[in-house]
């Protein structure tokens, strides 16, 4: 399990990184934390000719609140997000999900941008980005761009990100008011990739009815999916068990899970409904606790 030969360049800035990517004409791969890329290279499932190291580029790091948006630099370590009070207060869904990403040692190296760009359909951070409708800011040698996370994923580990582009920042919407979030996943062991995962966030009105909601499902389709129709069922209504079950079924109906040694497609679909219901219940409970 030794990687194939590659060349290595450390980018000192975003401009430097995109210039290196452009020059490599599709043969380069970015490496930040490398927690997914390095094992793929060790197994020779990935064999880039050039690794462009963007670790430590200062402009890619940091967490800041600007208005109703939480801006997270793509190079920000998952461990930093986990420990961030700002994230914990403002984007509870992310705070709930982040502890499920691998183990502490993985989060010490792994970055939010790396996980989102890699696009594993069972990974937590792409799911959160899709669920919340995050905006991904990108950079190429031609200039800056942005794309909604909901339009980003094409299939397993396949995204619309051009080969010469770099995600620089993830902008997450901050919901104010009586907001609650829930995140549940089923993994055989804690820290494993999820067989299925569910994310939910709700806002309640003064009378406890759902003002708005988002539901996302991971691990049960080629990409993480936002279940807009299922979420819409909740709007204007009280989040009781029957309604939650209906929304969970609607979300599960959207899945296209695969069968493998860890479980059949049917199992994953049922699991999705269970996890969505749990996430919604948690979200409702949390929101109700907000005065």
């Amino acid at each position: 399990m030794k990687a194939a030969e590659f060349a290595y360049a450390r980018a000192l800035s975003v401009a430097d990184a995109v210039a290196l990517l452009a020059a490599a004409a599709g043969e380069a791969k970015l490496i930040a934390g490398g927690q997914t890329l390095v094992p793929l290279m060790a197994m020779r499932l990935a064999r880039p000719a050039l690794l462009v190291d963007i670790d430590g580029i200062a402009e890619l790091n940091g967490i800041a609140m600007v208005g109703d948006t939480l801006r997270i630099g793509a190079g920000t370590r998952q461990a930093e997000i986990e420990r961030s009070g700002l994230v914990g207060r403002e984007v509870r869904l992310l705070a709930l999900a982040i502890g499920h990403v691998g183990h502490g040692q993985i989060r010490n190296r792994g970055t939010i941008g790396g996980s989102i760009a890699h696009g594993d359909p069972a990974a937590e951070l792409p799911l959160v980005a899709v669920t919340l409708g995050a905006t991904l800011l990108t950079e190429t040698s031609a200039g800056a761009g942005e794309i909604s996370a909901r339009d980003f994923y094409l299939g397993p580990m396949t995204t619309t990100l051009p080969a010469d582009a770099l995600i620089t920042r993830i902008d997450l919407p901050i919901w104010r008011g009586r907001v609650g979030a829930g995140f549940h996943e089923m993994s055989p062991r804690r820290g494993d990739f999820a067989l299925a995962a569910a994310a939910a966030q709700v806002e309640l009105d003064g009378r406890g009815r759902c003002r708005r909601a988002v539901i996302g499902v991971g691990g049960a389709a080629p990409t993480p999916i936002a279940c807009a129709d299922a979420a819409r069922l909740l709007e204007g209504r009280t989040l009781d068990d029957t309604l939650i079950a209906a929304a969970a079924s609607a979300a599960a109906a959207l899945t296209e899970p695969a069968s493998d040694s860890h479980g059949s497609a049917e199992y994953r679909r049922r699991l999705t409904a269970v996890l969505v219901a749990r996430a919604l219940k948690d979200a409702a409970t949390m929101a109700r606790a907000v005065p």
Binding site: G104, N108, R109
Partner: peptide, 18 residues
């Protein structure tokens, strides 16, 4: 596992050049 600037990381998931 080793400590990298004091934080535990997996040293198989990093190239030495990094």
């Amino acid at each position: 596992s080793v400590l990298l600037d004091g934080e535990p990381v997996r040293s198989c998931l990093m190239f030495a050049v990094q």
